[in-house]
Amino acid sequence: MNDYYVLFKSFFKIGIFTFGGGLTMLPMLESEIIHKQHWVTKEQLLDYYAMGQCTPGIIAINVATFIGYKQKKTRGAIASTLGMITPSILIILSIAIALESYMHLDIVQSAFAGIRVAVCALLFQSVLRLGKQGIKDTKGLIACLMCFILISFFHVSLIAIVISIILFAIILVKKERYHL
């Protein structure tokens, strides 16, 4: 069997059987990529995760791309990424098409009004969790609050903030190095 096909198939399987992405797919990745295919070791996988978190984009996709590239270079990376996104595309498109004709019904509207409240409550918990992981000191808290205020009240663009932070980080490192 073609190597690219095997990569595609493995990540297709992971995409179909995990809910939520990110760290929730770690167990599935372990059983498929480490124990079944022996593509990477546990340490390598955790390394890819750590790097997938600090590179732009979706973490699950980044990890899939790293593993695909390690196996079969650029084409392997593309095969794994396609494998990972295909189930989502198929499933979400089917649901979206199916829902479209029922969306105007009162009962569906009520159902979604209820669901949106649950989603708020779930997002609220994720925010608390992310806050605990991401904010370690007063400086972090101030940075978080400043970003919140800039976006919510002054409608500053997210991209402008991200670019400024990247430039600021580079200047800080340069300064530290200069003094050393």
Partner: peptide
């Protein structure tokens, strides 16, 4: 490492702002 350390708390701020609007 520095970029990521600085970005992390800010990303929390971004998400808080979006979640508050949805709320």
């Amino acid at each position: 490492l520095k970029i990521f350390a600085l970005l992390r708390p800010c990303v929390v701020g971004f998400i808080v702002s979006a979640v508050l609007t949805i709320f």
